[in-house]
């Protein structure tokens, strides 16, 4: 394998990891854009989504067709979970100081993780996620596995759909308005509560999809599986500019590629340090993130 092939192969590895981060980062950034809340329980939605996929796939077997069914069941269920989380936990705190909602989010995250741990159907022990048999396609001496193709296709497809919803539908317009100025949109007759619920639903559905993709690529599901991807996706969202949707996608891809290239060409022991060091540099140069707008304090 030549150096060129190695670089190309590592890019593919990085992009496939990055697209999962990107899907998850979208949820963080949308919720932040609308209610200015870092929803730390978002990574655990990925876990719930993966577990729903696990139950569906173990029940009906794995073929490309049943994989689609798993997405179709897991995404709406997680959307529902996201909306109820918002209604029960965050809505009562909407006018409280922001730190209260943040602490609630962290508490909710612990609740979901440990709740899953004690639930007999899930339990504390890792399980093997059912996957399609491995198939690898070779192109220019570079391997592209079926899982990677599925990840790309689903991630990019969902991002296009999201882009359409945000930019070309009425509810998308309302979302943009609320994120721009919540008070004014309320006065203009926009149902802010509904928009917020919709945002949570959208973000959670994407997290569920990310969960199934993550579990297909790394076939093991356990209650704490959402913590690390959640954290990385949060960083990706900040890197891209929190509140910016294209920023979250970009941030996810950059983080995935940076992490993989650091492991592949520098030192695998220092990979996380190098990847996160890069992020610090970017944030020092551009504190609002790559695509974030720095907003002057309104007085």
């Amino acid at each position: 394998m030549g150096v060129f092939q190695q670089i190309l192969q590592q890019m593919i590895n990085g992009l496939s990891l990055g697209s999962i981060y990107a899907l998850l980062a979208l949820g963080y950034t949308m919720v932040y854009g609308i209610v200015k809340l870092i929803n730390f329980a978002h990574g655990d939605i990925l876990m719930i989504g993966a577990f729903i996929g696990y139950f569906v796939l173990t029940k009906i077997g794995v073929t490309p067709g049943t994989l689609i069914i798993a997405f179709l069941i897991s995404m709406p269920l997680c959307a529902l979970l996201g909306v109820s989380m918002e209604k029960i936990c965050y809505k009562p705190l909407r006018n409280a100081p922001r730190i209260n909602a943040l602490i609630t989010a962290i508490g909710l995250s612990f609740f979901l993780e440990n709740g899953a741990r004690v639930l007999p159907a899930i339990g504390p022990n890792p399980r093997v996620f059912p996957t399609l048999p491995p198939v690898t396609h070779h192109l220019l001496g570079v391997g592209l596995s079926r899982v990677q193709i599925i990840i790309f296709a689903v991630a990019v497809g969902l991002m296009l759909i999201l882009n359409y919803i945000i930019n070309f539908t009425k509810i998308g317009k309302a979302m943009r308005a609320v994120s721009y100025d919540k008070g004014a949109s309320y006065l203009m007759g926009i149902n802010v509560d509904r928009v917020i619920s919709f945002t949570f639903a959208l973000g959670s559905a994407l997290a569920a999809a990310a969960g199934i993709l993550f579990a297909s690529a790394y076939p093991q599901v356990e209650p704490y599986m959402g913590i690390m991807p959640g954290l990385k996706a949060f960083i990706a969202a900040v890197l891209g500019g929190i509140g910016s949707i294209p920023g979250a996608m970009l941030g996810g891809f950059i983080l995935g590629v940076a992490e993989t290239l650091a492991k592949g060409f520098l030192s695998s022991q220092m990979a996380d340090a190098i990847a996160f060091g890069l992020l610090i540099i970017i944030l020092v140069v551009k504190p609002a993130g790559i695509l974030g707008k720095s907003i002057d304090e309104k007085v």
Binding site: M1, Q6, Q9, Q10, N13, G14, S16, L17, F214, A217, Y218, Q220, M225, M228, E259, T260, L261, K263, G264, S268, Q269, A271, D272
Partner: peptide, 20 residues
């Protein structure tokens, strides 16, 4: 000789390097 940190789930970068 490649390494990872406990809890990691993505080993693709290291495996590509080993394959080379």
């Amino acid at each position: 000789i490649e390494s990872y940190a406990g809890g990691d789930k993505d080993f693709n970068a290291q495996i590509t390097k080993i394959k080379a």
